[in-house]
Design a protein around this nucleic acid. Structure first.
Lengths: 118, 118
DNA sequence: CGGTATCCCAACGGATACTG
DNA sequence: CAGTATCCGTTGGGATACCG
């Protein structure tokens, strides 16, 4: 059988799997949010303390979107004062390699981390 | 010596290396552009043929930005009609792993590619 | 062929005030 | 404490027409 080489077209950007991933983890603040969650659960206020310049509304929306995409899990404790903890889902955990890959490339190619250790 | 654990803060989003990488490769059309270039040099018109719905202006700006970031190389041949070829720089080539990582995660977690092979 | 120029719209991000 | 509501500026992406 002959295999005809079909050139894949990108009729819309969403046909690209990479674009699809970046739609989920991209934007200005989602990367640090996911990065922090890779270390463990975090409360709403903690995000705001660690990222002092993110607007509350933006933080709120990012968390909602990540939750809707199945990346993070929101757990609210019915206490006074209220406590809400965010953590990574399994799907979110599976991003660990991806995030390290992106971070690694950045350190080598954007931050000019010297290769002096070599 | 005791090592005090310093919590890294993200005063601006750009403090996050992952955000920095996504600033370079992100957006709607840059991923497919880089993806295509990983297979070899491409001419301006070819991009437009493979991605029929990208606006000329957008394609043009994406290519300019990628060039400014040192990811791609633009080579113009002084012919009539003119010919311009885009290819990856070394820095651009170094994105291969990153792109595969992003693409792989997408196939497993967004496109629901069955794991039937297991 | 390989682009620019112009105009437009929606989405994202941001500051501040307020609420359960 | 953990958000929402409102308003606003900037950016990214898009359609169309035109140029060297």
């Amino acid at each position: 059988m002959e295999t005809k080489k079909i050139e894949k077209k990108f009729h819309s950007a969403e046909d690209c799997p990479i674009t699809a991933t970046i739609d989920v983890i991209g934007g200005k603040w989602k990367p640090p949010i996911i990065w922090l969650l890779l270390k463990g659960p975090i409360r709403f206020g903690e995000f705001n303390r660690i990222m002092p310049n993110i607007a509350l509304k933006v933080l709120s929306r990012c968390l909602k979107e990540l939750e809707a995409d199945g990346i993070i899990i929101r757990k609210a404790y019915p206490e006074i004062p209220p406590r809400v903890e965010y953590s990574l889902s399994e799907k979110g955990e599976s991003l660990r390699e991806v995030m390290f890959s992106l971070s690694d490339w950045s350190r080598k190619n954007i931050m000019n981390e010297s290769e002096s250790a070599l």
